[in-house]
Design a binder for these strands. Structure first.
Length: 916
RNA sequence: GCCGGAGUAGCCGAAUCGGUACAGGCGAUGGUCUCAAACACCAUUGGGGGUGACCCCGUGCGGGUUCGAAUCCCGCCUCCGGCACCA
């Protein structure tokens, strides 16, 4: 038997696969298709274990589908535009294009080491002009269909990144990449009208997506039902407000406008103007972050103006406060302090009246001045004119009787109407950056906006520019100066497209990466679309995944798929609803976290100076006991020469001066503080924490097959968990055992039919188990089943208890079942066993339920639900027989104590429960 | 604060429908091999009690429903993720 040499085998197999074009995927209408997709990576230049964790299980599933007879498309590409490349240009004077290309080249090599079935001839790179030509083309389509527009809005400006950002890219008032604060600015920018699809985006009827993602998107879209009502004023126009509680209109005692609201100026009286302007200036200065930090402090200012409550004709004061946002609803609210906690706090702060209009169910109406907090529960409407006496519940929208009655009445009176609002805002897609696809628009100077003609696409990014942290496009004349359709001088748009736009349609480009007649070739699309299984991280729930859904719906409505539908009909495929959603099944993988590690146990001698310990000597000694030194304990953290040591009783800070001695017995020579190992907790891997696992090292040490298998085996895939550097040995042993089984010369010794039957049974049960588990994205249990089969085969090999033919079948079945997980070693053994064709072209074995069926099952006998006996019975055992067997058990007899059971519950053939 | 998800052995994790709790792996312990160690192989491995057949306890905590609960219901605790003046 030859030694298992993973490096030689894996490299040779990968080369052979590439040369033979084994993984080329071509349209073949005679076979069912399966489009498997994983989220395209950003070319960070270093493939980390997370990439392996995301990609290799998806590859295993794609391989399985292929063996099941599907024609599988499994492509890969790079999301290659973005800021890091530009930062590198500024910091290291490397052109973003060069930087990106180098990194992609490096990552391709690493990706290939995984041994995936990626069809590299379909690769796309989003910064290639051939690709972004169609990104620009899609922008134009959106523009021409009124779905892209230039408008002024309050937007998130990041001073750090020197660009605006979409709402989805701002978390807690900070940008999601660098965590630096953003400020709100009123700017003219390009938007996509995603809000027009808000209602359709709330529907998930035809797709199989994880519940958390659907919930997150639903919350992000934030649909709320209510009414719009106009409050007339004497000084300006009417103030339009949105409310989800129109039934409480009779309790509105003041209005509040957002600081940026256009009517603020007109409503402000001269005597209030200084205070109002001071407040507006202060509000404008605040970053989003500061605004949120201050959210507990109620601030606001009275404008001096009044508006008339249209339901009762009362004049109420108009205030300005930054807790009202211009971007939501109408930027103005009616305040009902009696029934809204924020309004209540505001009213108490500024001594505004509180008028209750809901009499609590089963309670008494409390006078406004005596209320300690707002009342938000159910009850009966009071003091509310036409809706007096109507019940109010906790239901939202028209489902609440009081709200429905009010909306009907408002409509009748012509003072308001039902209305729906969304938290979702239009997608801001301009970026004041260089490394992105230029927005294909020019400004002739007449105030008009002209899109670049299709034949002039792509608008190329100029290469010969200088980088200083701002976009060089704004000052680069050869790019900036152009001519309009009539040949008059014009200026180019200098903003580029949000990179999320590049990734909002990339799976279409895989279909025909070189196609020149459109973003994709209808002949390919008709066969492959839509994506059947999409896998990736859940962090994209409201970014990429929401944008992608919007894009498909918009493309459908812009008739981009019409030619595809025609081709589908020719081949007898019904295109109905196939372009409503991009990804039919979505699964999110979890994350591989850093491994826990105990820190060195230290013995420190020194003296205490001003309450701190200053070390004279530091020694590593795993057996040290308290009292062996001034400080004895585990090193928890180290910052420069300062150590945090956990002793039996407390955490002590120890300073280690340069002249102190450091002694680490396991490291020869002179030691220093930097060599001490500190404690690592289970947390995300990051270079600064020093808990990163490098997959390249693992491949060298264990081989890609082992790394793949282990990543799929060690965790529940959709959950992830901490890395375990010793655990991988279990997967390595498994692969080595498979090698041993595949290479073994089997010798029949004492053939025994019972063992042969058990082996065949186990084999067919494993076939069914592994296939089912892969389909349900449960890789860990699939591999566990294969390990069990391995255990069984090792025993059979030793004992020689089955016929040689049965042995051969079992070993080859094991190889077939393992092929999707460990493609190299199975391929090697397959060929060594005399097969000419690749194992990856073989069919998945068929599980025979007849063979898999157990001839006997263990029937559990319970007394009052507690297990008292286990009896082997025939699986087809009848009720009477089972009960008789149970009652006959000598383990049951004592509980019956000679009497009769009260009831007997059976779940045949597994269980009999005797109730006494 | 609100909305999701999760909590099972020393660790990672199994457990179609409410029906045998812990499959598989890691680690640990003992043994074989070795001068020794590592590797490899074999065996044991939730806790407690009993000479033994066996018995009791055990799925974050406290209750409940049920013949029977890791699984369903109610109330808590902890961790992870998302949102956060959303009118």
């Amino acid at each position: 038997m030859t030694q298992y040499d993973h490096t030689t085998i894996e490299q040779a197999r990968q080369r052979r696969w590439e040369v033979s074009g084994l993984y080329r995927s071509r349209v073949d209408w005679s076979r069912p298709k399966h489009y498997a997709l994983t989220m395209l990576p950003y070319p960070s230049g270093d493939l980390h274990i997370g990439h392996w964790y995301a990609i290799t299980p998806s590859d295993a599933r794609a391989r399985y589908m292929r063996m099941k007879g599907y024609n599988v498309l499994f492509p890969m590409g790079f999301d290659a535009f973005g800021l890091p490349a530009e930062n590198a240009a500024v910091q290291r004077n490397i052109h973003p294009a060069t930087w990106t290309k180098d990194r992609i080249e490096y990552m391709r090599r690493q990706l290939r080491s995984m041994g995936t079935m990626i069809d590299w001839e379909r690769e796309i790179v989003s910064c290639d002009p051939d690709y972004y030509r169609w990104t620009q083309w899609l922008f134009k389509q959106l523009y021409e269909h009124g779905l892209a527009y230039r408008g002024e809005a309050l937007v998130n400006w990041s001073p750090t990144l020197q660009t605006v950002l979409a709402n989805e890219q701002v978390i807690d008032g900070k940008d999601e990449r660098t965590g630096q604060p953003v400020v709100q600015k009123l700017m003219e920018q390009w938007f996509f009208a995603i809000t027009r699809y808000a209602d359709e985006l709330l529907r998930y009827d035809d797709i199989d997506w994880p519940e958390p993602v659907r919930v997150m998107q639903t919350n992000w879209i934030g649909r709320s039902e209510g009414a719009e009502v106009v409050f007339p004023t004497t000084t300006g126009g009417g103030i339009r407000i949105f409310t989800t509680r129109p039934d409480t209109l009779w309790g509105a005692t003041f209005l509040v406008l957002a600081p940026e609201h256009p009517l603020v100026d007109a409503l402000t009286t001269d005597d209030r103007r200084p205070q109002v302007e001071a407040y507006l200036a202060q509000a404008a200065r605040k970053t989003e972050l500061e605004r949120m930090e201050d959210s507990k402090v109620v601030t606001g200012v009275f404008t001096g103006g009044y508006a008339t409550n249209p339901v009762n004709g009362e004049d109420i004061p108009v205030w300005v406060a930054d807790y009202v946002l211009l971007s939501y609803g109408t930027g103005a609210i009616m305040a009902v302090p009696a029934h809204d906690q924020r309004d209540f706090e505001f009213a108490r702060q500024f001594e505004l009246p509180v008028v209750p209009v809901i009499e609590p169910a089963g309670g008494d109406l409390i006078a406004g001045e005596d209320m300690a907090e707002s009342y938000v529960g159910p009850g009966v409407m009071v003091g509310s004119g036409p809706i007096d006496g109507v019940d109010t519940t906790l239901a939202k929208g028209r489902a609440n009787p009081s709200i429905a009655a009010t909306i009907d009445w408002l409509k009748e009176q012509g003072i308001g109407s039902g209305s729906v609002n969304y938290r979702l805002r239009d997608w801001l897609i301009s970026r004041q950056r260089y490394w992105g696809a230029p927005i294909p628009v020019i400004y002739p100077g007449t105030g008009a906006i002209e899109s670049v003609a299709d034949e002039h696409l792509p608008v190329l990014l100029p290469e010969d520019v200088q980088f200083d942290g701002t976009s060089p496009l704004v000052s680069y004349a050869p790019f900036l100066d152009t001519v309009d359709a009539e040949g008059h001088p014009a200026r180019r748009e200098t903003d580029t497209l949000d990179t999320f736009m590049c990734s909002s349609w990339y799976w279409f480009r895989y279909l025909s990466p070189d196609f020149g007649g459109g973003p994709f070739d209808a002949e390919e699309a008709a066969y492959w679309l839509p994506v059947d299984t999409y896998t990736g991280g859940a962090e994209h729930a409201v970014l990429h995944l929401l944008y992608a859904r919007f894009f498909v719906k918009a493309m459908r409505d812009m008739k981009v798929f019409d030619a595809t539908a025609t081709v589908m009909r020719i081949y007898g495929r019904d295109p109905d609803h196939l372009f409503d959603e991009p990804f039919m099944t979505l699964r999110n993988q979890g994350q591989v976290l850093g491994e826990e590690r105990t820190g060195d146990r230290l013995v420190i001698d020194g003296e205490t100076v001003n309450g701190r310990v200053v070390a004279v000597s530091v020694r590593v000694d795993s057996d040290a006991a308290p009292g062996d030194g001034v400080v004895v304990g585990e090193l928890m953290r180290r910052t420069e020469r300062s150590l945090q040591v956990a002793t039996a009783t407390a955490t002590v800070t120890v300073e280690v001066p340069a002249e102190a001695t450091v002694d680490i017995p396991s490291i020869p020579g002179t030691n220093d503080v930097n060599q001490l190992r500190h404690h690592l907790e289970v947390q995300r891997m990051s270079k600064s924490r020093g808990n990163v696992v490098d997959p390249d090292d693992l491949v060298v040490q264990y081989g890609a097959d082992t790394v793949r298998t282990h990543l799929m085996f060690a965790y529940e895939w959709q959950k992830g968990g901490p890395w375990d550097s010793r655990g991988i040995m279990g997967s390595r042993r498994f692969i080595e055992d498979v090698w041993k089984l595949g290479e073994a010369r089997y010798a029949e010794k004492q053939v025994d039919t019972a063992t042969a039957g058990a082996l065949a049974r186990g084999l067919h049960q494993t076939i069914a188990k592994v296939g089912g588990d892969i389909e349900h994205v449960k890789f860990n249990t699939a591999i566990a089943a294969l390990m069990s089969l391995r255990n069984e085969l090792l025993q059979v090999l030793r004992a020689g208890t089955v016929p040689a033919a049965a042995w051969e079948t079992a070993v080859e079945t094991l190889l077939l079942l393992l092929a999707p997980f460990a493609p190299h070693v199975t391929e090697e053994l397959w060929h060594r066993r005399g097969h000419r064709q690749s194992i990856h072209l073989a069919r998945w074995p068929e599980a025979d339920p007849e063979i898999a069926r157990n001839p006997v099952v263990v029937m559990v006998v319970q007394v009052n639900g507690k297990v008292r006996d286990r009896i082997e019975v025939d699986p087809s055992i009848g009720e009477d027989e089972a009960v008789a067997a149970a009652l006959a058990s000598h383990r049951v007899a004592p509980y019956l104590d000679g009497g009769e059971p009260r009831t007997v519950i059976t779940r045949l053939p597994n269980l009999v429960n005797v109730v006494v």
